[in-house]
Design a protein around this nucleic acid. Structure first.
Length: 655
RNA sequence: GCCGAAGUAGCUCAACGGCAGAGCAACGGUUUCGUAAACCGUAGGUUGUGGGUUCAAAUCCCAUCUUCGGCUCCA
């Protein structure tokens, strides 16, 4: 099967300077691949250029290899893939008969899916880790072998006979591709069907931790069997692993659910229902500031604001197509005097109905109607997640009705608006996706192409890197989605810009053109923030709860040092309030230290301490939540705060 | 919805078959203080809910609800 065992070892210089013998032969491919990707550079002998096979061949000659890169992402990729194999080796040793499925590398680590009768317990994870460390200490060579096609075809049957149904299915898939190479990797008693490459031996696999176990459907299809997935992470150096684990812990402190409770922003209550949010006064204050800004920006941007009800007759949803296409996500209806009504999962049909409310002229277009529209969607119980996935939420929705000749400009304006809005809230990093025409679609191909081109142009005009989701658009039109990351790096779709060729048809929307004939308008759906709830959740995590001044629920807190200066302190507070700031006041019944501690806990941006000195001089001692202190004239402080609040500084400079 | 884990005072946690406890927060009093924890006291829980086992259940069993981590799905 392999000649590896017959070939002498290659000395490899490790990152710590020690020299290790690693097996030659099959793993040369891996070393060569490593070299080509910058993981390793050889010191003597072999050629650096040429194909992988050439490199492997040249490595068969006398040479030494120095692993110079220890944090390169490719190198980490190989390491983590080998980790997945090591874990599978341990699991199949501990519980013979466990079937292995797939074990890929993911953003911060790796996982492997297993099919075993019993669930893995936390104690099992400890045992697996111990077994892995034993195999790692043995520095088992990881050897590659390739299998000729006829033999591989027999292997499918052998896998089946052994009950390794998942491997059989994977191998079948590989063989279905005509000229693919079937390769295996072995270490100790464990062999896995795998493309590679891997690190040369398990001795590289020192610094790792298994993190969690979770269910996962085979091939990601919920009709398939649910397997058990074990997640882990690994690094070349212990320091990197420790650093990563610390970051995870830090990220948990920024969790909006935790901060939402600590800062008293919002709550989710059993008595109300899962996925339904109560906005506490402090959170509501932030939301109010967000919405006020949002409304003004829309008026400034040529939009009209509208309102629509939370429920409507089932006939509306029949016409819009929601009862046939979206029913699984809708709450069941209510009977009102013999007519069925449904809670709205979207705002579009209301705006569309309003469009139809009277005849429209080409001169009326574009119409831009925006609404902070609260919608209700039935989400399966397992998917709810704080504010980021809820059952009742307010979309910052808008629908634009325009002529075909206006489509490009409107799309460009919307994309610009999205980016301005996100930037104002301090977001500069997000993932953009352009979803194009799927196989089944409505509307004219030429219009689809035009709209897609316009979307692409808008993205490129702003220099926004984006991924194309080919064929990932809705059946009714292409779209752009922007995703924000939470503290743990999970992505949440917020902004969306969608072209809709469908609803204008369904509702038979028309306008009278300059030619006196009826024409069909094009419709855009768009949300800049997505939903207030989700965006707010991301915002909380983005700022770790330390909102920039313009959004902070309480912007400044005034602390008189003792009862004698309370009159002056009240003047200070009144002066700030008169300048339009949100001011708190705490009298001297608590120690100054405690009042400051509480304000720090609530991440209040500014604290103003006044004592006898300040009262006599007409100054304030201004403290920021970052701990900076400065004494300045009262008027100066008022102007500073008012200016910072009005300018909507993002607050990032402070931290 | 599925797989796994967890629900004890407002919060963070202890007790793990034998009287449910601590710190912080709250409340009352004392303290009037110069930038992240002054002192004394009081009150607060049918241990998520409903069943069951037991002389005895926070603890063991079953069901259910909710939350957490994933899968699937989506703003």
């Amino acid at each position: 099967m392999t000649l590896a065992s017959q070939v002498p070892a290659i000395p490899v210089t490790m990152p710590d300077g020690s020299v290790r013998e690693v097996p030659r032969g099959a793993t040369c491919m891996d070393l060569a691949a490593s070299i080509s990707r910058g993981l390793a550079k050889k010191a003597v002998g072999a050629r650096i250029d040429g194909t992988l096979r050439d490199l492997a061949t040249s490595l068969l000659g006398p040479c030494s290899v120095t692993i110079v890169t220890t944090d390169d992402s490719d190198a980490l990729h190989f390491l983590r893939h080998s980790m997945a194999h090591l874990m599978a080796e341990a699991v199949t040793e501990l519980w013979p008969g466990t079937k292995v499925a797939i074990g890929p590398v993911i953003a911060d680590g790796f996982y492997y899916d297993f099919d075993r009768g019993e669930p893995f317990t936390p104690e099992d994870l400890v045992r697996i880790e111990e077994t892995m460390r034993r195999h790692a200490a043995a520095a088992e060579p990881i050897l590659r072998s390739e299998m000729p096609r006829p033999e591989a075809e027999q292997a499918v049957e052998r896998f089946r006979a052994e009950g390794e149904v998942y491997k059989a299915e994977i191998l079948e898939g590989i063989l279905a591709e005509s000229d693919s190479v079937v390769s295996f990797y072995s270490q100790g008693a464990f062999t896995d069907l795998c493309e590679g490459p891997h690190v040369p031996d398990t001795g590289f696999l020192k610094h790792f931790k298994l993190l969690s176990v979770a269910g996962a459907y085979w091939r990601g299809n919920e009709k398939n069997k649910m397997l058990q997935r074990i997640y882990g992470t690994a690094f070349f150096r212990q320091a990197d692993l420790d650093d990563h684990l610390n970051k995870l812990e830090e990220a948990q402190k920024r969790d909006h659910r935790k901060l939402g409770r600590e800062l008293d922003l919002f709550g989710i209550y059993d008595d109300i229902g899962p996925g339904l949010i109560l906005w506490h006064p402090r959170g509501s204050r932030v939301r109010h500031e967000m919405e006020t800004f949002w409304r003004q920006a829309h008026y400034d941007g040529g939009y009209d604001l509208v309102y629509s009800p939370h429920i409507a007759k089932v006939t509306l949803w029949d016409r819009s197509g929601h009862t046939s296409h979206y029913k699984d996500n809708m709450f069941s209806g209510m009977d009102v005097e013999g007519q069925e009504y449904l809670a709205k999962p979207m705002n579009c049909p209301f705006h569309v109905t309003m469009y139809k409310g009277r005849g429209r002229s080409y001169r009326d277009l574009p119409l831009r109607w925006a609404e902070l529209g609260t919608v209700y969607r039935y989400e399966r119980s397992g998917v709810l997640h704080g504010l980021l996935r809820v059952r009742g939420f307010t979309q910052d929705d808008a629908h634009l009705f325009c002529r075909v000749d206006q489509l490009g400009e409107e799309l460009e304006r919307v994309v610009t608006f999205v980016l301005e809005m996100l930037r104002t809230f301090g977001f500069t990093r997000f993932q953009a996706y352009l979803a194009t025409r799927p196989e089944k679609y409505v509307g004219e191909t030429a219009l689809w192409d035009e709209a897609t081109t316009a979307l692409r142009a808008a993205l490129e005009k702003h220099g926004l890197p984006y991924e194309v989701d080919e064929g990932g658009g809705a059946f009714y039109g292409p779209k752009i989605d922007l995703k924000l990351e939470d503290s743990l790096g999970r992505q949440w779709q917020c902004s969306t810009v969608q072209v809709d060729f469908n609803l204008p048809e369904r509702f038979d929307l028309t306008y009278k053109g300059s030619d006196g004939k009826e024409h069909r308008p094009v419709m855009l759906h768009r949300a800049l923030l997505g939903s207030i709830e989700r965006f707010f959740g991301c915002l909380v995590e983005h700022y770790s709860g330390a909102f920039p001044l313009w959004l902070a629920p309480v912007q400044a807190e005034v602390f008189p040092l003792n009862a004698e200066v309370e009159d002056y302190a009240r003047d200070v507070a009144a002066r700030l309030e008169a300048a339009g700031l949100r001011v708190g006041y705490q009298d001297a019944s608590e120690h100054l230290n405690n009042r400051i501690k509480e304000a720090q806990r609530l991440k209040t941006p500014y604290m103003l301490v006044v004592g006898k000195r300040e009262a006599e001089a007409g100054t304030v001692a201004l403290r920021t939540r970052a701990g900076k202190q400065m004494v300045m004239a009262l008027e100066e402080a008022v102007q500073k705060l008012a200016h910072e609040s009005e300018s909507r500084a993002t607050g990032l400079a402070e931290s």
